[in-house]
Computed example of a mutant assay.
Amino acid sequence: MHSSSQSIYLDNAATTATDPRVGELVLRLMTLEYGNAGSRTHEFGLDASRHVSRARDQIAACVAAASDEIVFTSGATESDNIAILGLADHGEATGCRHIVSTAVEHKAVLEPLARLEARGFTITRIAPNRAGEVSADAVLAAVRQDTLAVSVMHANNETGAIQPIGAIAAGLAQDGPYLHVDAAQTFGRRTSELRDARIDLVSLSGHKVFGPKGVGALVARRRGMRRPPLTPLMVGGGQEFGIRPGTQPVPLIAGFGLAAEIAIAEEPARTARCAAVRSEALTALAPLAPTVHGGSDPLANILSFAIPGVDSEAVMVALKGLVALSNGSACTSARYEPSHVMLAMGLDPDEVAGTVRLSWCHDTGPIPWTEIVARMDDLRI
């Protein structure tokens, strides 16, 4: 499954297929039960509102949050923007104009941080080691009296490297900086760490967890009775607790809720299958002596590596029609520039230029490793 007549899809870190069970629900709510959740005067609207409420409950249960702590958005990128830019007014009002993050964040975090920097905020970006991992001690040591927030991704989308969000959460004072985690890659895969009550804000994406594109969520946990002091980026309508206005996309929201519920129920089996594929990949690629990124405990469904003397563009041309893969983030693939993640890891230029990413899922069928390795081997100098 998840392949065309010509190639096997190995770019699941970019996006996943919508689960058929989810697709069936989404289509039904688009064509038959299509009420506006804001229309409370008839059954169409009330049914739509119930679907939204159920999805909110489903996602809240996944991350051990309250239902009214789930804010639906268009995806993790918007959630990241709301979490970071939304705290700015509070930071300016309280004199807390410092944010700690990492140099390997997704551009959906790095670019909002750059905007705040232009507004006078100070940003400390912690560099990773050569495997792509960030030290919790380094993050915590950068926290100051005027630190407004700490923003650290759970897993890197290019390398699969897991960041120590649990240790960071444990090291922050309970009344200290707000902690934001971009969990686009780990929700439904390593969900247990996202249930830590000290993580104030969590960004989620529907299309990374076999749900529809165009929907995501921001988990905004209370501290006691207080919600995170987020200023909405848009206004008009007051939906989503006043944080994200606009008519709620009921089919997408309901689909995301179902996809999340299924992902949690099937997480152990899915993880085991992905780990088995990773083991197959490493065994098959071993004769090429690859340099593997991601550290000692990366996501089971992502393999980032470079073959000495082989350029990534040449690899993608050689494997075209056989497998679909990537040499970086899908969000910036139109830009022909070195990966900021690889550069931050301190890799030499040849290794940066040679890195490719394979990412599969629990539903990926047989992968032609012998042919993949043979074509790569032909490229070696």
Rank of each mutant, 00 (worst) to 15 (best):
E92A: 11
F256C: 09
E158Y: 02
A66Q: 15
Y9I: 01
I82L: 15
D311P: 00
G214T: 15
A334R: 10
G120M: 10
A55Q: 09
I162A: 10
P112D: 09
A66K: 09
T124G: 02
A260C: 14
L230A: 09
L25E: 04
I8S: 02
L140G: 07
A13K: 06
A149E: 04
T271K: 07
A142S: 14
I372T: 03
D377C: 02
G237T: 07
R221N: 06
V373H: 01
I162F: 04
R222K: 08
Q58R: 09
E267T: 07
V352T: 14
S312G: 04
R119P: 15
A93I: 02
A324R: 12
Y34N: 13
R190Q: 14
I264P: 04
G160C: 09
R226I: 03
M234G: 02
S329E: 08
V317M: 02
H154Y: 12
T16Y: 03
V315C: 13
S74W: 09
Y34K: 08
D146Y: 14
A37F: 00
V292K: 02
R115S: 12
M1C: 05
P287D: 04
A138Y: 01
I59G: 07
I264C: 10
I82D: 04
R195E: 15
V341I: 09
L29G: 04
V352M: 01
